[in-house]
Design a protein around this nucleic acid. Structure first.
Lengths: 147, 147
DNA sequence: TTAATATAGGACTAAAATTGTCGGGTTTAG
DNA sequence: CTAAACCCGACAATTTTAGTCCTATATTAA
């Protein structure tokens, strides 16, 4: 309930991991899988999604991998979640692609109130960037271990 | 993904509905079920939960029902979600009652970053009250229909 | 005092979403 | 030409959510 999906967690872990490396130093799916105990095929798909949206860039072939494609303050949590799980909509009736109409029909009194929550939440996650998260990472003793 | 559960939606609808009535005017589960097309046994259980947490008060017997038990600015969205679905934790590792330990073990670099998101989100939903939502309701043409 | 309509609540089933797996590609360094 | 990497769709397993069923208690009114 109101929780990030594992895929989003994996995406954040991966991006933070890459943000600790300098320049175009590569990170492979296997490396992330090993280091964080994430099923390799799953992390692979997450990375592919991130690559498609150009948050990271891929290098194919042996010795290939990924590196950050954008500065860390240009990537917001909102964008990451959207890329992985689709746009964050707090209630279904606010979704854009909504095929089946709202069952409440004209009786719905909540659409507008939910709209406020949604708009405020959008701002919240739009302005929360990888940089904000990375800062906290720097205070954490373990991070020094990441090469 | 990052969406309120139906139960939480139902709780918000119910509370906003009751907030439109004055004093101790009662609202029954049947009334809410009819008006918003919600399965009656489901809305009942949501109301029971809200009553147990004393957001609303119940009156039993024929002509019974519920009425708001607290001023609208004393009820936050955070409290409602907690009452219905348990505490909002953005990632599983931040849960209090966590029996199985984090699979990342000492490799986890994300717990602290997620902690920031969590803390900021807590503030966000703690300070968002029924009053904030009801205000938007007032601007909505349909609300006049609720007696 | 009985019938009707409320809330109270546990146990169960159905449906949906998430998570993880499988099997097949293509690319490239050595 | 082979190993190690990315690419990608389809599937299976698991978990969570949503909804149902059934029984009990309370209260009003005929």
């Amino acid at each position: 309930m109101l929780r990030f999906s594992k895929k989003v967690e994996y995406a954040l872990i991966s991006l933070l991991h890459m943000s600790q490396k300098k320049g175009e130093q590569l990170t492979s799916a296997a490396e992330l899988s090993r280091q964080y105990h994430i099923p390799q095929e799953l992390i692979s798909k997450v990375l592919q999604r991130l690559a498609k949206e150009e948050f990271i860039r891929s290098v194919q072939g042996v010795k290939g991998g990924y590196f950050l494609g954008q500065p860390i303050d240009a990537i917001s949590v909102s964008q990451i979640v959207s890329a992985i799980d689709g746009p964050m909509k707090i209630v279904s009736c606010l979704e854009h692609r909504q095929t089946d109409r709202c069952i409440q029909k004209n009786h719905c009194t909540i659409k507008n109130p939910m709209g406020i929550i949604q708009r405020r939440l959008d701002i919240f996650f739009d302005t929360l960037t990888l940089r904000d998260l990375q800062q906290e990472l720097s205070n954490h003793p373990k991070t020094a271990e990441i090469s």
